[in-house]
Nucleic acid binder design. Sequence first.
DNA 1: ATCCCGGCTA
DNA 2: TAGCCAGGAT
Length: 363
Amino acid sequence: MNRQIHGTVSSSKPISLKTKHPLSDSNQEPANGACGLVETRVYIRKKRLKQEEALEPPEKDSGKGVNTHKLCGLPDIEEFAYKKNTASSSSIFAGKSTPMDNSITMNSVKTEGNAPENWVKVFEGIRQMRSSEDAPVDSMGCDKAGSFLPPTERRFAVLLGALLSSQTKDQVNNAAIHRLHENGLLTPEAIDKADESTIRELIYPVGFYTRKATYMKKIAKICLMKYNGDIPSSLDDLLSLPGIGPKMAHLILHVAWNDVQGICVDTHVHRICNRLGWVSRPGTKQKTSSPEETRVALQQWLPKEEWVAINPLLVGFGQMICTPLRPRCEACSVTKLCPAAFKETSSPSSKLKKSNRSKETMI
DNA sequence: ATCCCGGCTA
DNA sequence: TAGCCAGGAT
C-alpha cells in the first residue's frame, strides 16, 4: 500500500490519485476473500482520521450526531441564532437585515391559535440548557473554506456540504470538503469533468460516499445546464436534485439563499416535538409519523421568526439530553412541561418485545 | 420496506 | 459482535 496521504493540512499538494485505491476499482468487494481489501480500507480510514484531526482538533461535544447546521465552510447557524452579536455581519447573511435579535423574539410572538401552551417557556428552557452545556465549539477553521469564495461558488459549496454532511460527522465532512477544495473540485464545472471514482476517493469516508459521488456528478451537470452554474434557488428545484430531500433543501435555502420557506426538520426535531406534544397528525392527537408531517404541523403554529433557530436548538438538545434512547430527563429543566418526561425508563434489559420499546422510545 | 456506509454501543 | 442510527432513493 503505497498510497500517499500528506499529513499536513497546510500542504496544498493534492492527494495523489494515481496510485491504486481500493475504492477506485468499481465493483470491489469481491464476495469472498475481501480481507486484504478491508484491511487496506481500515488503514486508509485511519490515515484520514488523523488528517481530519489535524484539520480540526476533536471537539468534546461533537459526539456522533450530525450538526447539520454546521455546513463546512459556513458560519454556524447556531451561532448566528443564539450568540449575542457575532461577527455575522460578515456572514453569509450579510446584505440582509441584521440577524434576528436573539435576545428575544419571543416577546413579539403572537401565539397562534393552535400553539401548544407554554411552548415559549419550553423553548427558553431548552435554550438555557443549551447555553449552559458546553457551548458547541464554534465552527472551527472550516468557515474559511467557504466564506471567502465568491457567492456563486460559495452556494455550490453549501450545497455539497449539505449533501455530504448527512449521516456524517462534521469532522469527516469538513475534511472531505477540504480535500475537494484542495483539488479544485468545489465548482460544478470541475465536478462535471472529474471522474466519479476520483470524487468517490476524495469524499471517502463520508457516509454513503458511493451514492453521494454519483449525486455530485448529476448535481453538477444540472447546475450547469439549468442554472447557469449556480444552484437552484427555489425549494422545488432543490428537491429535484438527486440526494437532496426536504431536510437538506430547507437547510440549503436557509444558508445559501437566506430564504426561509420551511423548517428544517431532522430526526431530532421530529422526535422532540412529538415528545413535547407539539405536533400531531392532523385532526388527531397521535404522534406524527414522519419528519415531513412534523414539519407541516410545526409550521402551523411556530412563529416564523423561530423557523431557523429551532433546528440547531433541538438538535443540540437531542444529542445531549433528550436523546432517542434513554433520554436524560433528570438533567432536563422542562420536564414539568413535558408529557413524555420520565416515561421512557426503558429497562435496558428487555431487548425483547420490540413492540413495547418502540411504543415508548420511537416517539 | 429496504438499502446504503461506517461509527457507536449494549 | 450484532444491531442501531440517519436522510434520501427506490
